[in-house]
Design a protein around this nucleic acid. Structure first.
Length: 661
RNA sequence: GCCGCUUUAGCUCAGGGGUAGAGCAACUGAUUCGUAAUCAGUAGGUCGUAGGUUCAAUUCCUACAAGCGGCACCA
């Protein structure tokens, strides 16, 4: 006698076990038609699931956001059926729903190409039109394995073999096609609808392990209706325009080329942006109690052997030799060992702790070729690195302090929110469980004090200690780790760092490895995408373009340029023989935040007409007022907290809304 | 590193077994003009690199490199 409670609190009683379909029908024909699946006591299940006991039921219709995951998963099944119909002999493996869509991994001798998409999509639409019901059935292990092995589906058979003994093995069929699947599914393939599109093909290792064969993955996107699909595709198009590689070229910020794979050639404007960020960071670190140092790039292998990197990290290190000397040097892949060497100069006292040692450290790592990505993942980069030598008791307060600094820096760059991952002890690790307990406990405590919400990243910590990762998202939704804080009690041991404590005895310091931007290259890449190249005034590599209307105004334009430069602004003076319309267009396309227009009127009245990027409204100011105002506006956020910070935030929000120029 | 795709002028791209074309940018000239493209002309390419097939290769094939999309990696 199940009593079924609906979201509105009302209750319905039935004489015996009922399916969701029956319950929906009892409520009304509209719902019977619209219900795709249901949540049974919070768990998403098939509508055909039998309800035997009292339960809370929420029906899922196409209007619910939860429907998306169902639609995407079902679309993956439709894709698999279509592929097997079109390309017999192709093995199916797995096909989950993911953010914005789904994928399905196939094993086939000849890989798919996007040229196959039209045929596959057509077949998928056919399958959707058939509207075959999804039918769930429970199988026993032997029969299920035998079934797939008989079909030549060795991957599916392997999946079943690896399912836990306690797990029910369920199949879902749609017409003649059947798949191993946990479900749930909607009612029929017709519920998939037509708002889907295949997006790309890619290779992917079976079970995500590079020792396994590579499968062909087909990615698709699926939505509740055409409007949503169109919006998503439009968003992707817009995101593409914000790609830092595209903007880097268009704005002439940097380039990369074959002769220095994975290294950035910064052009004048790009380097200006870099230096602005660097100068800002330097001020913040100085104010934050850090001491800046500079350590060598080429370091003898002996140090790397001592630190353990030679053993564990050598394949990622660039090595260097000279003819005359029988030595192997390596380009440093990280700065920590060098910082320990500075720490070890002289006898350290507990009074010096916490000692915060910072470096804009140029590092080189031989990254796998396939990992390189624009300036986000490179082989030569500069970390805004620092190591805090401290006691265990200082881990928590230093973490709180660091998170505050990082949050403030991110805010100043226009990132109001970011994700934090907490990576705890990996399987292979150094140190005792007690030490790990203390280190993880201290980090967690610090997060609580700092009000940091993190997601747990189990087992992903460094072998020497737990870490926090601060993650920013790029224009097309890829996540990049930028900031980090890592607790390390191994390296001080290996490199024999010590200090004299209050008790007169020698102690090991704990090392906190931390970075805020991560690397300038990656952070600037994300920053470029964040602003779509339309930087707030303080960051803009060219802050003001002075555009003349007639050549009679040239002398005044040069005078204006001098005045603005004297006030610390970066300007270009455009006295070219072209129309003011063209000049405005050119500088707007270059995302110069302020265009100062200078014609006869301005020269005579000694004024300046200021036009902001993308805004038609403009204002006329006396020259000196204009210079003073712009100089004030161009101050970095840490120098003029309220003004620039609000401007940066406003601009970031505006860019998110706007269609990119 | 693995799978797939791509590589033609500074940029965006067309073309195709008989050694190449457009638009924009650049340069030159004319034009001096008031808020997102003034007009005309000129110049610009070992068609990623190296082999192979062919009477002939930028085009077809192979290898390599770089880039792109993923996967793996990111101590």
């Amino acid at each position: 006698m199940p009593a079924i409670t609906l979201p509105d609190g009302s209750e319905r009683r039935f004489d015996g076990p009922v399916t969701g379909t029956t319950v929906a029908a009892s409520i009304g024909p509209g719902l019977a038609k619209a219900a795709l699946a249901m949540k049974l006591d919070g768990r998403m299940v098939d509508l055909s699931t039998e309800i035997a006991d009292d339960a809370k039921v929420v029906f899922i219709t196409r209007r619910d956001g939860d429907a998306l995951e169902l639609i995407r998963h079902d679309t993956a099944h439709v894709l698999a059926e279509a592929v097997q119909e079109l390309y017999p002999g192709t093995q199916v493996t797995i096909g989950p729903s993911i953010e914005n869509g789904f994928y399905y991994d196939f094993a086939r001798n000849a890989p798919f190409t996007t040229a196959d998409f039209p045929a596959i999509e057509a077949k998928m639409r056919e399958i959707v039109a058939r509207g075959a019901p999804f039918v769930r059935s429970v199988q026993n292990r032997e029969e299920a394995t035998a079934f797939f092995e008989a079909k030549g589906e060795s991957y599916k058979a392997e999946l079943i073999r690896d399912l836990g003994a306690d797990q029910t093995i369920t199949f879902y069929s749609q017409g003649d096609w059947i798949d191993l699947c946990r479900g749930p599914h909607m009612r029929t393939t017709g519920d998939v609808g037509t708002a889907f599109k295949l997006m790309k093909v890619a290779g992917a290792y079976w079970r995500g392990d590079h020792r396994n064969p590579m499968l062909t993955r087909i990615y698709g996107t699926a939505w509740r209706d055409q409007k949503e699909l169109d919006a998503h595709l439009h968003m992707l198009e817009e995101a593409e325009k914000r790609d830092h590689r595209r903007i880097g070229k268009d704005m002439n910020l940097f380039h990369m080329q074959e002769e220095a794979t994975g290294s950035v050639f910064w052009h004048p404007k790009g380097w200006k942006l870099y230096r602005t960020a660097e100068a800002y960071m330097r001020r913040r670190l100085e104010a934050g109690g850090y001491d800046e140092v500079k350590t060598p790039q080429l370091v003898d292998r002996a140090l790397w052997e001592a630190s353990g990197h030679w053993d564990k990290y050598r394949e990622h290190m660039f090595q260097a030799q000279v003819d005359d000397e029988d030595k192997t040097l390596a380009l440093k892949p990280m700065n920590c060992p060098c910082h320990v060497l500075i720490f070890r100069q002289g006898l350290r006292s507990y009074r010096e702790l916490p000692l915060r040692m910072a470096e804009f450290g140029a590092c080189h790592r031989y990254e796998p070729s396939g990992a390189l990505h624009g300036i986000m993942r490179v082989r030569a980069f500069t970390q805004d690195d620092a190591h805090i030598f401290c006691t265990e008791a200082q881990i928590a307060p230093e973490t709180v302090r660091f998170v505050a600094l990082l949050s403030s820096v991110y805010r100043d760059f226009g990132f109001d929110s970011f994700r934090v991952k907490f990576s705890d002890r990996p399987d292979v690790r150094a140190g005792t469980d007690e030490t790990w307990d203390r280190a993880e406990g201290a980090l967690k405590e610090a997060c609580a004090i700092a009000g940091v919400d993190y997601e747990l990243n189990p087992g992903e910590g460094a072998f020497y200690g737990p870490k926090l990762e601060f993650v920013l998202r790029d224009a097309i939704g890829r996540d990049w780790q930028c900031g980090t804080l890592q607790v390390d009690f191994v390296l001080p041991e290996r490199l024999d760092a010590e200090y004299v404590g209050e008790d007169g005895a020698r102690h090991r310091p704990v090392m906190l490895h931390r970075a805020i931007l991560g690397s300038f290259e990656r952070f600037l890449g994300i920053l470029i995408e964040q602003y779509a190249g339309r930087f707030p005034l303080w960051l803009a590599p060219v802050q003001v373009a002075i555009a003349t209307v007639v050549s009679d105004a040239d002398p005044y334009a040069f005078e204006v340029a001098q005045a603005l430069k004297a006030a610390g602004l970066t300007v270009v003076t455009d006295t070219a023989n072209s129309k003011i319309n063209a000049k405005i267009r050119d500088h707007s396309l270059q995302h110069v935040p302020v265009i100062a227009i200078v014609g006869r009127k301005e020269a005579e009245g000694r004024t300046l007409v200021l036009r902001r990027l993308g805004v038609e409204k403009q204002e006329t100011l006396p020259l000196h007022d204009a210079v003073a105002r712009l100089a004030q506006e161009a101050l970095a956020p840490d120098l003029a907290p309220d003004l620039a910070r609000d401007a940066a935030r406003g601009r970031a929000a505006e860019v998110l809304e706007a269609v990119v120029m």
